[in-house]
Simulated scan of single mutants.
Amino acid sequence: MDEIAGRIREGVLPPGTQLPTVRVLMKQHGVALATASRIYRELESIGLVVGETGRGTFVRDTSLPRGLGLEQHPV
Rank of each mutant, 00 (worst) to 15 (best):
M1H: 11
M1K: 04
D2T: 11
D2G: 10
D2I: 08
D2F: 05
E3Y: 01
E3A: 10
I4N: 02
I4C: 02
I4G: 03
A5V: 02
A5M: 03
G6P: 00
G6K: 10
R7P: 09
I8M: 11
E10Y: 01
E10C: 02
E10P: 00
G11Y: 07
G11E: 06
G11M: 07
G11V: 05
G11T: 04
V12D: 11
V12G: 01
L13T: 02
L13V: 03
P14A: 02
P15W: 04
P15Q: 06
T17C: 09
T17D: 04
Q18M: 03
Q18I: 00
L19E: 02
L19C: 05
L19S: 04
P20Q: 01
P20D: 10
T21E: 10
T21M: 05
V22F: 00
R23H: 05
R23D: 11
V24S: 12
L25H: 12
L25N: 04
L25Q: 11
M26Q: 14
M26I: 00
K27D: 13
K27G: 06
Q28N: 11
H29L: 13
H29F: 13
G30K: 09
V31K: 11
V31F: 08
A32C: 02
L33D: 13
L33Y: 15
L33A: 13
L33V: 10
A34N: 14
S37H: 14
Y40F: 14
R41Y: 11
E44V: 10
I46F: 01
L48P: 07
V49I: 15
V49R: 09
V49S: 12
V49C: 12
V50W: 01
V50K: 03
E52R: 15
G54Y: 12
R55L: 14
R55W: 09
G56H: 08
G56D: 03
F58G: 05
F58C: 04
F58Y: 15
F58I: 03
F58Q: 07
V59Q: 04
V59T: 08
V59K: 03
R60H: 00
D61C: 10
T62V: 15
T62Y: 02
S63W: 07
S63C: 05
S63A: 13
S63E: 14
L64A: 08
L64V: 10
P65S: 14
P65M: 12
R66F: 09
R66T: 07
G67F: 03
G67P: 06
G67I: 08
G69R: 06
G69D: 04
L70W: 10
E71D: 15
E71K: 05
H73E: 14
H73D: 08
P74C: 00
V75K: 13
